[in-house]
Structures are given as C-alpha cells and as structure tokens.
Design a protein around this nucleic acid. Structure first.
Lengths: 143, 143
DNA sequence: GCGCCTATTGAAAAACTTTTACAATAAGGA
DNA sequence: TCCTTATTGTAAAAGTTTTTCAATAGGCGC
C-alpha cells in the first residue's frame, strides 16, 4: 500500500508539505534531518516551513512510514521505511544508509539477554556504522 | 584504575564539578541526562553549573569513563562505563539500565551484515528496551 | 465542479537545549 | 605556600523543537 492511501485511511490529508517531504525522502540515499529537508525544499524554490517538516516527520514516523537513523555525528535522520525490518548500516564517510536483514540472528541474542538480565525484551535499537564499498575503493585509490 | 588516576594521567585536574558528577553517576541505577544531573546537584544544595556538567560529561565520555544510553523517550542519558562491553537494556517502566554481555553473539551478525551489504563494519549501536524483573512483578500484582 | 467544514499550514513567539566567551577561581606541581 | 594555567561560573549566543493562532487548502457531499 502506498503512503497516500495509508494516510487517507488513517484520516489524514495529502497536503503539499507531506508530498514534498515524502518525495524528497524517497529520492535520497542518506538519512535526512528535519533541517536538511527544509533547506533542500527551500533550495528547490519551494515555499516550505520548518514547522511543517517537523510535524510531517513526526506523523510519518508514528505511522511507520519512515524510519529514524542515528548519524555518526549524533544527529537524527529519517529514511522511508520499507516493510518489515528496519535496521541500517550507515557509512561513516558518505553517510549512505543501507538496510540489512538480521532479525533472525538477533533472536538468539534476545533470548540470551533475557536469561542473563531477567528483563522481558520488548524492543531494540540496532545500527551498524562502517565504510561502504564505494568509499572503501576511494580510500584504496588514494593510498 | 580509578577515574581520578586516569584523569590525572591524561593531564586533567580533579575538580569539584568532576567529582560531583562522577559521584552522582556512580550512585544511580538509571542513566542521567545533563539537566537531571545539574538539578540533582542543585537539590543537594551544591553550587553547580549546567555548563560544567555538559563539559564534564563530554570529557568523561571522550575518555571512556561513562557510556551513553538512549532513553525510551528519546533523551540521552549517561552511566559510569564498566570495562569492556557497553551494551545496555533499559526498563521502559522504571528506566533502570543493566549491562549485558553480548559481544560474541554479535560477531556472527557483524559478519553476516558485512557479506550482505559489503560494508566494512567499524562500530555499532545496540540497546534493548524491555521490562525489568521488579516492574514485571509489580504489573502482575496489580493485575 | 462548487461550497463547506475542518485538518493543516506558516509565521511568530516561546520553550528548551547546547555552545561560546571571558573574567574569576582553584587545582596541583615547584 | 606560591605560581601557573586549567577549569569554573555567569551571561549571552546559537541552535533546536514546540506552541499558538489566524489564514489556507484538502477532500467530502451535493
């Protein structure tokens, strides 16, 4: 189901800022902060407001349409969420984020943590940082 | 090695705010934000400044003396770092954080992610959220 | 396609968080 | 104890996120 139908079914409207934000996120490889999204819309000559970007991101995130990614430098970026798993590895050089599938491998760890700590595990935060293939090649060339 | 020796050897002084912040962190079960630390020091009648708390936390974190924990509601808390692993599970009810040992179990996942994404994995962010044994019992009693 | 209802927007301001500047203070080696 | 300078605290600046509210525009019914 596309995001517009989902919004409508949930009782929300398809407004211009919402379209702009989603379009921008769908066309980027790197997670984008609220401010970065706002600045890019401005740069495109759009009449956009930072407040709407914040509101839109909050809404999209609550509906599971976008995922949050912690950037190496500590800021919080957003990406369109694909169905199912939402774990990312982020390139420390070019910031490109790629999803990986690791849910099954986490199950073992979850059980071990539960028996080790006696907590009931409800949720987790998992992200990897590293260097993407392209940036690996670039550093090889310059070396 | 205790933190005071480590600070001294790294060329830093053992100042009053640094002692206050470390003492407070050592005596708490839940991760503390900069503001929370400042407010507690104030409540204890100490003459403290929020700026120094920020500076102290930044220093301690850079020296590996404290660890950062993402709270369920999104804020960033600090805890004294024990040697070695620094992965936490945080109670969604009482916010208590407990370390768990899962480095080995992550190795398999790291390798899988590397072969799946072709990234070179350099670092990771792993945290669990759940309900601690005490809070599990409390909810059982009230049920 | 038109009009109405109200969700949503944008501008401004407020609230909150973090950083910077700089004179006063205090840590710790001589 | 004295001296040097790292560190502090106050104040201000910078940056981020939220709130307020009148104006706008989305989309349902006709």
């Amino acid at each position: 189901m596309d995001w517009q139908k989902l919004l409508t079914q949930a009782g929300y409207r398809i407004s211009k800022p919402r379209k702009q934000v989603m379009q921008l996120l769908e066309n980027t490889q790197t997670p984008q902060t609220a401010l970065a999204i706002y600045q890019q819309l401005k740069a495109q000559g759009e009449r956009a407001s930072l407040v709407s970007v914040y509101r839109t991101l909050e809404l999209f995130a609550s509906l599971g349409l976008i995922s949050m990614v912690y950037e190496p430098e500590g800021s919080l970026g957003y990406l369109p969420a694909s169905a199912g798993h939402h774990h990312y590895i982020v390139c420390q050089v070019c910031h490109r984020a790629v999803e990986f599938n690791g849910t099954e491998d986490l199950d073992g760890l979850v059980h071990q943590v539960e028996s080790q700590t006696l907590f009931a595990v409800k949720d987790h935060l998992l992200q990897f940082f590293g260097v993407c293939p392209k940036c690996q090649n670039k550093s090889k060339e310059s070396a």
